[in-house]
Design a protein around this nucleic acid. Structure first.
Length: 83
DNA sequence: AATGAGCGT
C-alpha cells in the first residue's frame, strides 16, 4: 500500500515518517520528496506498507494529525508509473 | 535559494 503524506514540516526527515508509520504497522520503505537541485524538502512524501490493514490503520491514525509540530495529511497515494 | 497545496529522483 502506497501512502501519500503531505503538509510535512520542511525539516522532517524520512526516518521520522518511517518511525511514525512503523508504530502502527510494518514499513518497508519511505521517502520524502525533495528538490533535486536545492535539496530542500517539498513538504510531502510517501510511505510504503506491505500490510493493507496496517496501512489503513496508520493512515486513519496519522491523517490530519500533528507530526513534527505540523498537522499532516495522509492519504492513499496515486499509482506511480510502474510500467 | 524560497514556501504550504499537492502526488515521487
Amino acid at each position: 500500500m502506497n501512502i501519500f503524506v503531505a503538509k510535512l514540516n520542511f525539516k522532517s526527515k524520512k526516518e521520522e515518517l518511517e518511525a511514525a508509520f512503523a508504530k502502527y504497522g510494518q514499513v518497508t520503505s519511505c521517502k520524502i520528496v525533495r528538490d533535486k537541485e536545492t535539496g530542500r524538502s517539498k513538504g510531502f512524501g510517501f510511505v510504503e506498507m506491505p500490510n493493507d490493514e496496517e496501512a489503513t490503520a496508520a493512515i486513519a491514525a496519522l491523517n490530519e494529525k500533528e507530526f513534527d509540530g505540523r498537522v499532516i495529511v495522509v492519504k492513499i497515494a496515486n499509482p506511480k508509473q510502474q510500467d
